[in-house]
Design a protein around this nucleic acid. Sequence first.
DNA 1: TATCAGATTGAGAATCAATCTCAAAATAGA
DNA 2: TCTATTTTGAGATTGATTCTCAATCTGATA
Lengths: 168, 168
Amino acid sequence: MSTPARKEAADWLTHAELKIHDAGLHRSTPRQKVIDLLADQDCAITALEMDQRLSGVGRATVYRAIEQLEDLGLVQKVDLGKGAQGFEKIDPSGHHHHHLVCEHCGRVQSFEDERLEKAIHRIHRRGFTVESHEITLRGRCSDCARPEPMSVSRPAPTGSRINAGARL
Amino acid sequence: MSTPARKEAADWLTHAELKIHDAGLHRSTPRQKVIDLLADQDCAITALEMDQRLSGVGRATVYRAIEQLEDLGLVQKVDLGKGAQGFEKIDPSGHHHHHLVCEHCGRVQSFEDERLEKAIHRIHRRGFTVESHEITLRGRCSDCARPEPMSVSRPAPTGSRINAGARL
DNA sequence: TATCAGATTGAGAATCAATCTCAAAATAGA
DNA sequence: TCTATTTTGAGATTGATTCTCAATCTGATA
């Protein structure tokens, strides 16, 4: 596979490794595995899922690595709804996307919108320095379209099906 | 006190009570306390904080009430950073705001921006029905402005000072 | 290559948030 | 008042995240 996404991932990986090194951090196998896994994802992944997928890497290490990467501006947190939070790489080019979260099945899709970015960048508030932003649209994905004309309460909610990670 | 905000709160309260009744829910003291507390807030408050402030209301009831209000479209979840999530009332007029979260001290401010709303409403993605949206800008508030030229790692982070709730 | 200070790790305990359970209590309407 | 239904809350449970600390690994230097 060598789609644009593939290339972007490689860019991020290189960039990340450089920054890690510049920060005076050692190069260790467990942390590297975390970084590689993140580089492979198209969209957000939860900490716990990373932990599960990475055998031979302790939970503490996963969380620590994520925190370090966050501090270095290499990954960002994403609210996945239902209180779940995921993490995804920040592209060094500044190129980024936002998320559509289906309230029904929990699926997360990504989208980009130039007009929206412009509107965001025009926002200034007294004394507040904006460093990053996050936008989440909630609703129903095509699969879950028409709500069944059923019960009044919770419509068979998310469960733990988080981050099914479909690309748009 | 009878600022516009006060009035809005009263509107919401009336509206909320009506919807609760229409949904066939009983009128109970504990739930009413939850609703009153929400009506009183200018900005987001966490579930746990509500629980602490409301003596005589069980934790389960607080969470349950919030869930019901969410289902009825009366309150919405807000990501407060550091994994904390808060809830705030949704004004029946459709009038709403978004948030500025200080990464340094955790303070949450609110802001409104018409241009941004317009950009949001112009977004359409194949098959996805947008029902609500959330926008969070992260950065540094005026109090925490210039980062101290200190250590490389975590700059004395948030701790649990969430929802200091200053209005803009 | 040997050495060492400092960085890194991981198992398990601890913490914290959120959810679930279910018997007892409260409510609305007849 | 009576009853079917809704609601409640104490406490157990689950689930995610953080903390602890001795053992291990790394990079730079001698």
